[in-house]
Nucleic acid binder design. Structure first.
Lengths: 229, 229
DNA sequence: CGACGGATTGATCGTGCTCAAATCATGTGG
DNA sequence: CCACATGATTTGAGCACGATCAATCCGTCG
C-alpha cells in the first residue's frame, strides 16, 4: 500500500468544499503546529491500514470515502464508521490500529506522522485537547451506533442511516452515496436484502427518490425522523 | 442526587483490591496533579448523572457497580458499559454527559472536578495524555461492542459477556455478577429470556456452574472462547 | 415462614435471514 | 452508438432465530 500518486503540500493547501463545512480538525491540529502533510491516493477497495498494524499516521479524507471495520473469523463484518471528505481517521492513542480502513472509491487522503502530532501536543495545549476531542467525537458516534445496533429495528436503522448521510453529504439536495448496499448492511447490522427492501418501501411511500441506486433525494425528512425511534 | 454519605480523602487513601489489579488511572491523573477527591455513595438504582446534564465531575468506582446507557423514546434501552471497582467513568471532552449513569447496587465512588483535571492537563503533559488514553480506552470497548451487537448471535454474545466479566471480576475462581438479567440483555441487545436460555444451555453443557443466579463459575473457558466466534 | 421480585421454562409468533431468480446499472469493445 | 457482459440491486418464497406472551420456579429479604 501507499504506492499511488504522491505529492507533498503544506497545510495552506486548499481543501475540498465538504471539508470546509465541518470544523477543520486537521488544520486545527497540524496546521497550528506547522506540520507538513503528505497526500496519498488509494484505488477503490484498497486497504489503507489493517487491524493490528502500527498506527504511525493520521489521515484526513480529501476526495472519496473510507470504510473502517472489524471482521469475525468466519468473515462476518461490522463497519464502525464511514469517513467522508474532511473527516479525520486513523488517530489512535495506542500503538496499533484497532480496525481496518479501506477506500470505498478511488480516494485521496492527507496524512501526517502521528509522532509529530504527539510531539506538538507536548508543546501546545490546544493540540493535546484537539487529539482528545477527535477521539471523543468518535466515541460519541460509537455510542449512538451501539444504540442503533442493539435496539433499533431494520426500518429505524435505515432511517437513521439516511439522516446521517443527508447531514454529512447532501449538497445540491441530492445525496450521492459512495458505498454499496453490502457496506450499508454491514454498517447497520443488516443484510443487503433487508436494506434494499427498506429503501424500496421508503421509495414507494414517497419519502425518498432515486436517480440510480446510489443517488438519493430525501423528500420527507420529518417522516424519516419519526421512523428513527 | 449526591445526597448520600460524604467524606473527603486525598489520593493517598487506600483503594479497593480490584482497582489495584488494573492500572490506576484515577491516581495517575488526579494523584499526580495533587488534586483532592471526594467520596459519594449511591443507593441501588440511583442515578449518578443523566444524559445531557453538565459533565462537571469525573468518577471512579470504589465499591459497587455502575451501568451507563441510552434510551429510545419508547423506553428501549442500550447499556454501553458496566463500570466495576477501579474503573473511571463520566469523563467527557464536551460539556455534557452523553449517557445516563446509575448505580447497579449500593455504590461508592470517588470524584474530582473535571475542570481541575483539565487545568492539570494544561500544566502536565502526562495528565493530558491520560485523559486522551481513557477516552481512547472507552472507544476501543465501544468498537468491540459494535461488532458484538451488529454481527454476533445470541450464544456468541453471552459467551463474550461471560469472558469479559470473568476477566474483569473473577477473584476466587468465582464471578459475582452485580447486574440482573435485564441489564445483561440490554447490554447485549437481547431479551432476558434469551440470556437466560443461553446461560441454561451452558450450564447443562457443563461449561459453567451456578451458586444462585448471579454467582457463576466458568468450568471451560476454552469452550467459551470457541463459541465467541 | 411468607411475599415479592428475579429468573427460568414453555409455546407461539414475527422480523429479518437465507436461498434463488429477475432486473437494472455500468462499463467495454465492436 | 449499440450490444453485450458483469456486478449490483431488487424482488420473491420459505425458514429460523430470537422476541413475545404466559406460567412456574426460585432466591432473598422482610
Amino acid at each position: 500500500m501507499l504506492t499511488q500518486s504522491i505529492s507533498t503540500s503544506d497545510m495552506a493547501g486548499k481543501i475540498s468544499p465538504a471539508a470546509l463545512s465541518a470544523p477543520d480538525q486537521f488544520h486545527m491540529v497540524a496546521g497550528q503546529a506547522g506540520l507538513v502533510a503528505t497526500e496519498f491516493s488509494y484505488k477503490k477497495d484498497e486497504e489503507i491500514y489493517g487491524e493490528g498494524e502500527p498506527s504511525d499516521y493520521v489521515y484526513q479524507v480529501i476526495r472519496g470515502s473510507v470504510r473502517s471495520y472489524k471482521l469475525l473469523s468466519d468473515g462476518r463484518r461490522q463497519i464502525g464508521a464511514f469517513y467522508l471528505p474532511g473527516d479525520v481517521f486513523g488517530l489512535e492513542s495506542g500503538p496499533a490500529h484497532r480496525l481496518t480502513a479501506e477506500a470505498i472509491v478511488d480516494t485521496t487522503v492527507r496524512l501526517v506522522k502521528r509522532r509529530s502530532l504527539e510531539q506538538a501536543a507536548g508543546i501546545t495545549v490546544q493540540v493535546a485537547h484537539s487529539l482528545w476531542s477527535m477521539t471523543a467525537g468518535e466515541l460519541r458516534h460509537a455510542e449512538n451506533h451501539m444504540l442503533l445496533l442493539g435496539r433499533k429495528n431494520a426500518m429505524e436503522r435505515v432511517a437513521s442511516f439516511l439522516l446521517e448521510m443527508d447531514r454529512r453529504l447532501t449538497v445540491t439536495g441530492m445525496m450521492a452515496l459512495p458505498m454499496c448496499r453490502r457496506d450499508i448492511g454491514d454498517y447497520l447490522g443488516l443484510t443487503i436484502e433487508t436494506v434494499s427492501r427498506a429503501l424500496s418501501q421508503l421509495h414507494s411511500e414517497g419519502v425518498l427518490g432515486f436517480s440510480g441506486a446510489r443517488q438519493i433525494v430525501l423528500r420527507n425528512r420529518q417522516r424519516l425522523r419519526n421512523m428513527d425511534a
